[in-house]
Every structure is written in structure tokens, then in C-alpha cells.
Design a protein around this nucleic acid. Structure first.
Length: 571
RNA sequence: GCGCAGGUAGUCUAGUGGUAGGACAACGGCUUUCCAGGCCGUUAGCCCGGGUUCAAAUCCCGGCCUGCGCACCA
């Protein structure tokens, strides 16, 4: 068992004070469900986003697009959000409890009721339904979980802020399929904001009204839910909690074999998601993948696994990996009237032997005159069932006996079929992920008898990568340190300079925000052109030449090598 | 949305009707200062609105925010 941290306020206090997160609209009293990404938090999230791109765009057959945050009403009617996102709610006059009307009716009366205002009002009246506390209900009202808006002047056109980035991808599917030259599988990613008008957002960054998503829609052939790179993660062992709440510590290959995970594509993305999360600093022992129970899945999903991280809020969902089937594409196809299928050629054309009627024009012509051509065309499309064929031409039924056609055995070559792809969707909540990383990296230790707060971020997500510090805050130390500071910035590092307070105080400042390395200019610098590099986690230092700094730092930031590989130990 | 608790410098906190105090942090200076050093100085606060009162951080009402429980989380 893992012990839950007792308090989280220690960390939250630091995040606000040092500039990771701030309450939005603070000077006007704030508004629940919105946060500002302060300088350090913004940098952290951006770095996490870029690593996500490496994993899910660059190293997949994937592309990234960016579509509007505002979606016209049609999109969300087709997607189902307009009906399943806009619930009818009832509120008790006496105790003030709010229920979803259709849920409450089903529970109390065991009645499946249409989710329309009239139907619900009728049921409430007919059965004189009361609240559990005995109180009467007020008039039912719409509870809209999407932010609505209008486009244009006057009455305008109804629109909503998108509740997920995914719909922008489905809506552009026709163009995307062409872009990929109609060849499955392919993935389309989008990173951006999404909006949900939560009734009562709580728990700080965990439930926001405006949040950041990174979503990948990976389109596959419905009968070939395999991924070419599955072998890369097949032997990874991880913790799975299935829909019967049974926990497995098992390899992905075995989980697919045993049918715990429905298919290989899902398993592949579960594995890849885990590797991504470990890369950015989520702890394996505080990570699990939980399968949605049958009654828990969203309206579009056929199987769904959540990555959950253990935090001071308990296990929180940070990634959802869903098999959305062809739900979205077939809905958008139906509502837009566009064909959203892809032509998939068979490996070899299939030859089908078929009995086909061939019209005898010399018989048809004299009898049907000018209609003969239309009849012949219809005849060629018809099936042969007996020795006569019935056709419907311009609303008139015509019966043709076998004298008008002969039946020939023909071979037809079928080169492929049109399919509506299925989509596997790994959907990442970047805000929750960033927060979970911060919690998992937050640590305290003892250095020379003093308690030290240290954020053990992975090097590649640290918002400030390197701090340049003069040992003494006076000449010539300061000028030399400033020189190194601008040299490192020119080399593309997120660097900082600090000459305020004692050197020990400054080391602690950077430990607290997770800066992995500090460069110190000391007396020896002026004798031999060297400085020290200090490691955040060990507080050890080595001496290196100033001119070697860019090369050494680049190496340190792309590996987990120790600073001791690069110079003589100093302290 | 409902209920309970709370809201005082950047952070933590003292203050039950009469001039708002401290610690830490931050900033400036001095000190040859390698892991929150010492000394001097500076900046900075009663969540918002209304009411009661000669007088409100303090009492009352409403709102906003934070935490917890219930409900909600497609």
C-alpha cells in the first residue's frame, strides 16, 4: 500500500509563491475553475507538450492540426454532445438537491423516459414524484455543460466552445484521409484548450472549466486493430485494474492474450502512454491503468482505459484511452451527408462468380421502343432469381420474361471495400498531468542538518534549466557570471542569473523550483577559466571549463548521465 | 447547487468594537559569503458590496473565493 500524502498545501503554497500557478482573475475575487499558468508552470506544461509531440506525433504515422475552439451547433448535435451534454435537471424546493431528471426517474420509477422537456414534465406530474427528503420539485430546467455562444451580429448562429478537441479532427476527416492518401492506419493529433461548464469545480487544478488537452485520434481498419510497433512495448509490465476491479501486474502481450485488453492498438497506446508518463517524471508505483466499467463509459466508447495517478486527491484520471469505434465518423457522415469512409484495397482482388442478366436488345427494342435503353440499364443491375425479372422503371413495375434476356455466368473482380475506420483515442489532460508530475517530484531531504525542499523534476521538463551564480555578489564575480549567463542563453538554454543573498540561499531557491544545475563563478574561475556545476539531487559539484559548458549541458539534458562524468569532483 | 468551516503584507500567522503586530520571503547596502550566515535599512496587508455604530479586521446581511461532506463530473 502506498501512503497518501497527508497534506498538499505545502506544495500548493510553493507553486503559487514561486510562480507555477495562480488563481485567475484574482484581483476581482477569482473565479472557480480557472487558473493562470504562471511563468514556471507555463514552461513546464510546454515542455511536457513537446515531449508528447515526440511520442505521439513525430514517432507515429501522425500529424498535428489546430482547429477552432468554437464549434457550430451542427457539430455537437452530430457528436451527441448537444443531447448527452445538455441534461434536464430537477431541483428540490426543500433540501435543494439537484438530480439528473432521467436518472432519478429511472431509479425511482424504473421508467425509461425520453430525455425531452415535455416527456419529463409529464412523468413528474403523472406520478407526482417527490424528492427523497419528501420535498416537491421545482420546474425542470436545462443543465448545459457546454459553454454556448453566438456567432455574428443580431440573433447570430448558435455555437459552443468545444468540450473536447477531438471533434475538430473528425469534422476534417475527409481532408485528412486524402492527406494520408487514404492509407490506414494514421493518426491526427491536436493540442489545445477545451471547455466544460462544470457545476461546481473543486480541487484546484483537477477540475477546471477551461483546460488543456492533447488528443490523438488514431484511425485503424475495423478488422485490423493491430499496431506495427506493438512489439516495442509488448513486454512492459504494468498495473491494470479491469472492469471487475481485479488488479493485475502483467505484461501487455499477456494482457491482450488473456483478453483483459480488447485489442492490440489499445494495448499499444496504453504502453506508450505509460512510457511517456514515466519519461516526464510520473512514478511507476503511483500509476495504474483502470478499465471503465460497462455503465461508466461515455456514449461513444466501446472500451476505455484510464491512466490514473496517485496524488493527495487520491487516484485521479490523467489520460483516457478509448476505442470510439466508428461512432463519430458515422454520426458526422449521417448528419452532414458526406461519405466519410475510406477505400481499402484487398491484398489480392477477389474474383466473384456471378449470374448476370444480359439484355437481348433485338427483342427489347421493338417491344419497349424508347424505354428500351432504361430497361436494359436496370436489367444489368438486377439479380437473377427465377426465369423472370421484375423491374421498376419511373414508378411503373415491368415484368420481363426470359425471352428478353439471357443469363451469363460472369467473373467480377472486387479490388477492395469501403470501410468507416475505427478510432482509438488516447486523450491527455495536460493540467492534471502537469500537477501530478509536480506532486510526484516534490521531495524533502536533509542537507548538512537542514531540511531542504527540492523538486526532483526530470531534467528535460525543468522550467529553468540552469542558474548562473557568482559566489560573491560583487565584481569581478558578477560581470563574469553575467557573461556566462548570456552565453548560455545564446546557446538556447533556459537560464537564470541570481546574485541576491548568500550562495547557499540561492542554491535552495533553485532546488525548490527544480532547476537541475547551478553554475558557480568562484575565485578559481579567474585563475584557470573553470566554473563548478552543481547537481540539484546530490548537491555535489564538479569543475569544468567555461568553454565546455554548452557541450556538457547539452549532453546532460539529453541523458541521465552524472555530472561526475564531465569533470573533477570539487565538493 | 445544498450544508459545515474559513478568508489579515508574496507566504504563514496574532489581533472579540477604539492608531493592525510578528515571523519568513523579497528588495537595497555592508561583510573574501560553497549549501536558508551576520548587521543596517526598505517595500508590503484586513476578499468585495451593503447595513448597525460616534467608531467595524472584529457584529449583521448578501456576494466571491478556498477547504471538507452531499450531489454533479456526458
Amino acid at each position: 500500500m502506498i501512503q497518501l500524502p497527508l497534506r498538499m498545501s505545502d506544495l500548493m503554497e510553493m507553486l503559487v509563491r514561486r510562480g507555477f500557478l495562480w488563481q485567475s482573475f484574482e484581483i476581482y475575487g477569482g473565479m472557480a475553475g480557472f487558473i493562470d499558468y504562471a511563468p514556471l508552470g507555463n514552461n513546464l506544461r510546454r515542455k511536457i507538450e513537446n515531449i508528447w509531440r515526440e511520442f505521439f506525433v513525430i514517432n507515429e504515422r501522425s500529424v498535428e492540426i489546430d482547429t477552432p475552439l468554437i464549434g457550430i451547433e451542427e457539430v455537437f448535435i452530430a457528436s451527441g454532445h448537444a443531447t448527452s451534454f445538455v441534461d434536464i435537471a430537477i431541483e428540490c424546493e426543500k433540501c435543494g438537491r439537484v438530480y439528473r431528471a432521467d436518472h432519478y426517474i429511472k431509479e425511482k420509477l424504473n421508467l425509461e423516459v425520453e430525455a425531452s422537456m415535455n416527456a419529463i414534465k409529464e412523468v413528474l406530474q403523472t406520478y407526482d414524484l417527490k424528492c427523497e427528503c419528501g420535498g416537491k420539485f421545482r420546474e425542470p430546467f436545462y443543465m448545459n455543460l457546454m459553454f454556448s455562444t453566438k456567432i455574428g451580429a443580431g440573433k447570430g448562429k448558435s455555437a459552443y466552445l468545444r468540450p473536447e478537441t477531438a471533434q475538430g479532427i473528425f469534422v476534417a476527416f475527409k481532408r485528412l484521409a486524402t492527406y494520408f492518401r487514404e492509407k490506414l492506419p494514421f493518426g491526427v493529433a491536436q493540442i489545445g484548450r477545451a471547455f466544460r461548464n462544470e457545476i461546481s469545480p473543486r480541487q484546484g487544478v483537477i477540475r477546471l472549466r477551461e483546460f488543456n488537452q492533447a488528443e490523438l485520434e488514431f484511425f485503424v481498419h475495423p478488422r485490423e486493430k493491430k499496431h506495427p510497433n506493438f512489439h516495442e512495448v509488448a513486454n512492459d509490465e504494468l498495473t491494470l485494474v479491469d472492469k471487475f476491479e481485479k488488479t493485475h501486474r502483467i505484461s501487455l502481450a499477456k494482457a491482450v492474450e488473456k483478453g483483459i485488453i480488447a485489442n492490440e492498438v489499445l494495448a499499444y497506446f496504453i504502453g506508450k502512454t505509460r512510457r511517456f508518463l514515466l519519461k516526464i517524471g510520473i512514478k511507476d508505483e503511483k500509476l495504474r491503468f483502470r478499465q471503465h466499467k460497462d455503465d461508466e463509459r461515455a456514449h461513444y466508447a466501446s472500451d476505455c482505459w484510464d491512466a490514473e495517478a496517485l496524488t493527495s486527491f487520491g487516484w485521479i484520471e490523467i489520460v483516457g484511452i478509448a476505442d470510439r469505434g466508428n461512432y463519430d465518423l458515422s454520426r458526422h457522415s449521417k448528419f452532414s451527408g458526406e461519405d466519410l469512409s475510406v477505400f481499402v484495397p484487398y491484398p489480392k482482388p477477389v474474383v466473384i462468380k456471378k449470374k448476370k442478366p444480359v439484355p437481348k436488345m433485338n427483342v427489347l427494342g421493338p417491344v419497349f421502343k424508347e424505354r428500351a435503353k432504361k430497361i436494359a440499364e436496370a436489367l444489368e443491375r438486377a439479380e437473377v432469381s427465377s426465369d423472370f425479372i421484375e423491374l421498376e422503371i419511373d414508378g411503373e413495375r415491368i415484368r420481363l420474361s426470359s425471352e428478353f434476356f439471357e443469363v451469363k455466368e460472369v467473373e467480377e473482380e472486387v479490388t477492395g471495400e469501403r470501410v468507416i475506420p475505427h478510432v482509438i483515442e488516447p486523450s491527455f489532460g495536460l493540467d492534471r498531468i502537469s500537477y501530478a508530475v509536480l506532486e510526484h517530484c516534490y521531495d524533502k531531504d536533509i542537507v548538512e542538518g537542514e531540511e531542504r525542499r527540492v523538486l526532483r523534476l526530470k531534467r528535460w521538463v525543468a522550467p529553468i534549466e540552469v542558474a548562473v551564480l557568482p559566489l560573491l555578489s560583487r565584481e569581478p564575480f558578477t560581470t563574469k557570471a553575467l557573461e556566462i549567463f548570456s552565453m548560455l542563453k545564446r546557446n538556447g538554454f533556459y537560464a537564470d542569473y541570481d546574485d541576491s543573498g548568500s550562495i547557499g540561499r540561492r542554491y535552495r531557491r533553485y532546488d525548490e523550483i527544480g532547476t537541475p544545475f547551478c553554475i558557480t563563478v568562484d575565485h578559481q574561475t579567474f585563475e584557470d577559466g573553470t566554473v563548478t556545476i552543481r547537481d540539484r539531487d546530490t548537491t555535489g559539484q564538479v569543475r569544468v571549463l567555461i568553454s565546455d559548458l554548452p557541450r556538457i549541458l547539452r549532453e546532460l539534458f539529453s541523458t541521465e548521465r552524472s555530472i561526475e562524468d564531465f569533470g573533477e569532483k570539487f565538493r
